[in-house]
Design a protein around this nucleic acid. Sequence first.
DNA 1: CTTACGCGTCAGTGATGACTTACGCGAAAA
DNA 2: TTTTCGCGTAAGTCATCACTGACGCGTAAG
Lengths: 104, 104
Amino acid sequence: MTYAKTGWTTLADPTRRTIFERLVERPCSVSELASALPVSRPAVSQHLKVLKDAGLVADTPSGKHRIYRVDQAGLAALRTELDQFWSKTLAAYKLAVEQPPEEQ
Amino acid sequence: MTYAKTGWTTLADPTRRTIFERLVERPCSVSELASALPVSRPAVSQHLKVLKDAGLVADTPSGKHRIYRVDQAGLAALRTELDQFWSKTLAAYKLAVEQPPEEQ
DNA sequence: CTTACGCGTCAGTGATGACTTACGCGAAAA
DNA sequence: TTTTCGCGTAAGTCATCACTGACGCGTAAG
């Protein structure tokens, strides 16, 4: 079992997490995001590409600007991922707690 | 705002994620885990240390063995982290969708 | 008491990823 | 048409991290 670039792993990076949370508040351009973060504009662009590849954001051209916004489908997929992880984890954990392993 | 080593970032690593999921199923020793994973025993030991530092697992000595198990308090904290992330994200997203930014 | 086992840690290696500067292309402004 | 702006990408650098083999300590077995 491998863990592809999902929402979870994509958002584990602090800079990407911050970018995503700003886009949750409202759509932004690269320059807007770059001016609010302690990294360069190409770094923001690179992170946005990762977020886009993970399906978490989408962009649309607007004149010279490209506006990035949260992708609702990607948000739903992230929610599903979190829910599935939790359901599976809780189920297995409860099973393990309720049935201690037999003495071997 | 920085993102410390929390459950989220800790479990973004595939090997640590797998180790954690195995411990959810049942407590294990380092050797048990190492025999089931494609990495060496010291690597498993190092990952367990990271999981322990994040509060996700705890260990108890059992003869020569150390048995690692999921820390219920850490599980609860992870659940809280996921819930808080989601609540905050949904609230901000709904606010953004409902009130498009004014023309500036 | 001696030997074997489990495992934490150290030191070293290599890959990866985050960042930077520079470049070039497309769109808007002048 | 020319200049300016926004931004994606290339190439390079550096820090971090995941991994390995070796070592040494504590516990159990002989």
